[in-house]
């Protein structure tokens, strides 16, 4: 096969994928907007995908907050800028790291779970069975997962922001002797400087990416257990890439003009 053909093949595969993902997004949103929602299943998924991700989200953001604080605090105090450490930690957490880290961690944990579950339903003909009963997989499976993540990811992000700031405060106190009160005072300045809501809008987009890519990967699974493994890996990789791209694009929209 020559190079041109290969490029052509890749390109058409890309557009096929993008088209399929767009279709799934459109039909899921249409069910969501028409309120065709399975409430119980949504709550169950919120627990499985959201609540059960809490521990790992807290852990990663705690350490991240601690690292930022550690790297800024000691030097800042040396040069007499101890009062900006809280600002730095709060700003970095709430504006960038909180949403991003939470998105990445949940993509790894929940995105893979969604793809694996739906993928194994494909290879055991459960999806075909649903379709044969006239039940749309998008409504039955995708919408509850989508809604669950849209609700849970912003909440997880708020927890991530808080724990990251608390971790930062602890490190600042322990290693740079910055009092909690001073740190928090400074942190408040950091938070009021930026817009928490923009970080949360980002998480809504990340949530949609994780749920839809995970579901789409699951639904396009072919070929037994090995196929499920492939779709699962693909779900994590593709949703992470899209999260990075979306993060940049949203920052450009939110902050690009003012920068």
């Amino acid at each position: 096969m020559n190079v041109l053909e290969r490029v052509g093949e890749r390109t058409s595969a890309f557009f096929e994928y993008a088209g399929g993902l767009t279709d799934l997004t459109a039909s899921s949103l249409s069910f969501l907007l028409r309120a065709r929602i399975r409430f119980g299943e949504t709550v169950a998924q919120a627990y499985l995908l959201g609540y059960q991700s809490l521990a790992i989200v807290l852990l990663t953001s705690l350490f991240t907050g601690m690292v930022i604080s550690l790297e800024s605090a000691v030097q800042a105090v040396q040069y007499g800028f101890g009062n900006i450490v809280g600002t730095a930690v709060a700003y970095a957490s709430a504006r960038e790291l909180g949403p991003m880290l939470t998105g990445i961690v949940v993509a790894g944990r929940a995105g893979s779970a969604i793809a694996a579950e739906i993928g194994s339903m494909v290879v055991t003909e459960q999806i075909e069975a649903l379709r044969s009963m006239g039940i749309e997989p998008a409504r039955y499976l995708v919408v509850p997962r989508l809604l669950a993540l849209i609700v849970m990811l912003p909440l997880l992000t708020i927890f991530a922001d808080v724990i990251s700031i608390l971790g930062g405060a602890w490190v600042a106190k322990t290693y740079a002797h910055i009092a909690y009160a001073d740190f928090m005072q400074s942190a408040r300045t950091g938070i009021s400087m930026m817009d928490l809501d923009k970080g949360l809008v980002k998480t809504l987009v990340f949530a949609a990416i994780i749920a839809l890519v995970g579901s789409f990967q699951g639904l396009r699974t072919r070929g037994g257990a090995a196929g499920v493994g492939k779709s699962t890996t693909g779900a994590v990789v593709i949703s992470m890439i899209l999260i990075f791209i979306a993060n940049f694009a949203l920052s450009l929209i939110f902050y690009g003009a003012s920068a």
Partner: peptide
């Protein structure tokens, strides 16, 4: 369309060779 098909499918049942129950 898939939507029309779903209407038709509700008047047809398929009993799968390997059951295909939701696990």
């Amino acid at each position: 369309s898939e939507r029309e098909l779903n209407k038709i499918r509700r008047s047809i049942s398929l009993s799968f060779q390997f059951a295909a129950l939701l696990d």
